[in-house]
Simulated assay, not measured.
Amino acid sequence: MPFTTRHKVRFQHCDPAGIVFYPRYFEMINAVVEDWFAEVVGHDFSTLHVTSRTSVPTASLETDFHAPSRLGETLTFELAVRAVGRTSLALRIVARCGDQPRLTCDATLVFVDLESGRPLPWPETMRHHFVIDCPRGCPDE
Score class of each variant (00 low, 15 high):
1 M>F: 08
1 M>V: 07
2 P>D: 00
7 H>D: 08
8 K>F: 11
9 V>T: 11
13 H>F: 10
15 D>G: 10
19 I>F: 09
20 V>C: 11
20 V>P: 11
21 F>S: 06
24 R>W: 08
24 R>L: 12
26 F>K: 11
30 N>G: 08
34 E>A: 05
35 D>E: 11
36 W>E: 00
36 W>T: 00
37 F>L: 09
40 V>R: 05
44 D>F: 05
44 D>A: 00
45 F>A: 03
47 T>H: 09
49 H>W: 13
50 V>W: 07
56 V>C: 09
57 P>E: 05
62 E>T: 11
65 F>Q: 07
66 H>G: 11
67 A>S: 14
67 A>P: 12
70 R>L: 13
72 G>P: 13
74 T>R: 11
79 L>I: 00
79 L>Y: 01
80 A>R: 03
81 V>R: 05
82 R>W: 01
82 R>C: 08
83 A>V: 14
85 G>M: 03
88 S>C: 09
91 L>C: 08
93 I>M: 03
93 I>D: 04
98 G>K: 05
98 G>V: 07
100 Q>R: 13
100 Q>L: 12
101 P>F: 09
102 R>H: 12
103 L>G: 09
107 A>S: 04
111 F>K: 10
115 E>C: 06
117 G>A: 04
117 G>M: 06
118 R>T: 08
126 M>R: 00
127 R>Y: 03
127 R>E: 07
127 R>D: 01
132 I>T: 10
132 I>F: 08
136 R>S: 13
136 R>N: 09
136 R>C: 04
138 C>E: 07
139 P>L: 10
